[in-house]
């Protein structure tokens, strides 16, 4: 894992810091600096709520290098309530409990560690909404 790259992505990984298009107000995640809807510059930061629902999901049994010690793990496309779709792991859930449309919330977890000596990368994962605080 590249240390500078991991560092550069902290804001988006730790707390879903995305962007909002100044022109058409589209919420953007992951941040990409140009609005995918209207092609206007979109560099204004916008933190997504982390709430969304499962758009699709699967379980990884044959992991790419760096993730072998975590198998099997569940991955998903999550539709955030602000609109963007995001690829992430699901956590605090077993694969058989997951279904399309399941409400999920963002948590910050370990994504992977670079061996025993390298850096630990933290970032967003999603889990089923398990408590309903009366906000």
């Amino acid at each position: 894992m590249s240390v500078p790259n991991t560092w550069r992505l902290q804001q988006q990984r730790y707390r879903l810091m995305g962007e909002v298009c100044d022109r058409c107000k589209t919420k953007i995640f992951p941040p990409r600096d140009v609005c995918p809807e209207c092609e206007a510059p979109a560099k204004t930061q916008f933190a997504l709520s982390g709430r969304g629902e499962v758009y699709s999901y699967s379980t990884v049994y044959n992991a790419p290098a760096g993730f072998e010690d975590a198998t099997p793990y569940t991955v998903a496309l999550v539709r955030l309530e602000e609109g963007p779709l995001v690829t992430a792991q699901l956590t605090d859930v077993s694969a058989e409990e997951v279904e399309i449309g399941m409400p999920v919330e963002m948590v910050t977890r370990r994504l992977r560690a670079d061996g025993a000596e390298g850096i630990i990368s933290y970032g967003y994962k999603f889990r089923p909404v398990q408590f309903s605080p009366a906000i």
Binding site: Y55, S56, S58, A63, V75
Partner: peptide, 17 residues
């Protein structure tokens, strides 16, 4: 890739949907 996806998993997301 940084989230542990494999190509099989990416295509599984499509197939499931």
């Amino acid at each position: 890739a940084a989230h542990g996806l494999s190509f099989a998993a990416l295509n599984a997301l499509l197939m499931r949907r």
